[in-house]
């Protein structure tokens, strides 16, 4: 693995499988009376959050703490950052405090990339969501969830059909998922109104459709993306009602899914908007599971980046096959 996790594209197939397999092992820790491993004792993980995201932050915090790392939460609100301190000075401060890893959530696309490549700090940088760019650990936990539900927790997602519906244009979750799922061999279809698809999406390793109903019957998993409130008044679509009618997942649409198919959402949800309440609460929904799995996956990422003298070395596919 690379030293940082900035983009899902940083992960080779072997890297991704290593993370998922490791997470699968670590998931058992949560079932034990003592949910803690000594592995990262003495290591410092900083959660550097320039955007509010309680669920992502506590997920990383739980992951780091279960590995016995010291966790420092650095929230931009009410800190020196809100007084105009630059990312650079913040990074230099964290370096001076001896951060072994910085988990960064930032509103600007590319901020984690800049942090990792600037030379401002030596530790590993883990992207916990940057602007409308990427959110690689979310994609990993989504893939982990799909693999558990669809593949018995093993192997890749070769040939699995995944439909991702909603605001792809502004979604870091969609970007990371498309990249990772393609790496794992899945067939991804993005469904959105044309206004919420980025220019150039035809070059992505996926299919694109404007019609949710034509994709559901052959989907193994359907992932609903959150529609941000601020999009609703910017003419990306006429009304909430129309969006919900054309792109929302209601019970009728859920019934069109194959028997085994699962319904996913990265949260937080707009119930009644992109997903009907009954769908979100149905047994097919993995929404709560995704949260649980997030901790295991983030433990795996932190362990593989920080657990050794350097990030985990992945064997190549050919060596793998030779065994």
């Amino acid at each position: 693995m690379k030293r940082h996790l900035i983009s899902a594209a940083d992960l080779t197939r072997d890297d991704a499988l290593l993370v998922l397999d490791t997470a699968e092992e670590l998931a058992h820790i949560a079932e034990r009376p003592i949910k803690k491993l000594p592995t990262l004792r003495g290591r410092t993980v900083v959660n550097l959050f320039f955007e509010d995201s309680t669920r992502t932050r506590i997920s990383f915090e739980a992951a780091a703490k279960r590995l016995s790392a010291d966790v420092i939460n650095f929230s931009a609100k009410g800190s020196s950052v809100s007084k105009g301190e630059t990312l650079k000075d913040t990074a230099l401060t964290l370096q001076a405090m001896g951060a072994d890893a910085v988990v960064i959530r930032h509103g600007a696309s590319g901020a984690p990339h800049t942090l990792a490549n600037s030379g401002w700090l030596r530790g590993s940088v883990v992207n916990a969501g940057d602007g409308t760019h990427e959110h690689p650990t979310q994609a990993l936990l989504d893939a982990f969830t799909m693999r558990r539900r669809l593949n018995d927790g093993k192997g890749d997602l070769e040939g699995r059909r995944i439909t991702i519906v909603g605001d792809v244009l502004h979604s870091r979750v969609a970007r990371s998922n498309v990249l990772l799922l393609a790496t794992l061999g899945a067939e991804v279809t993005l469904v959105a109104p044309p206004t919420l698809l980025p220019i150039g999406v035809e070059t992505w390793p996926c299919q694109v459709s404007y019609d949710i109903d034509s994709t559901l019957a052959k989907s193994d998993a359907v992932m609903m993306l959150r529609v941000q409130r601020e999009r609703m008044n910017a003419s990306y679509f006429p009304t909430e009602r129309e969006y919900s009618r054309r792109y929302g997942l209601d019970e009728k649409r859920m019934a069109a899914l194959p028997e085994h198919a699962i319904v996913m959402h990265p949260g937080p949800m707009n119930r009644g908007m992109e997903i009907a309440a009954n769908v979100a609460d149905s047994p097919r929904s993995t929404i709560v599971e995704q949260v649980t799995n997030g901790v295991s996956v983030r433990m795996a990422v932190l362990y593989l980046l920080l657990g050794g003298s350097e990030p985990a070395v992945t064997t190549t596919a050919t060596e793998e096959n030779a065994k």
């Binding site: 696309s109 590319g110 940057d130 602007g131 409308t132 760019h133 990427e134 870091r172 970007r175 980025p198 220019i199 150039g200 999406v201 070059t203 992505w204």
Partner: peptide
């Protein structure tokens, strides 16, 4: 263009 779509800028 293609690059902005990927970079989320």
């Amino acid at each position: 263009g293609t690059v902005s779509g990927i970079l989320g800028l």
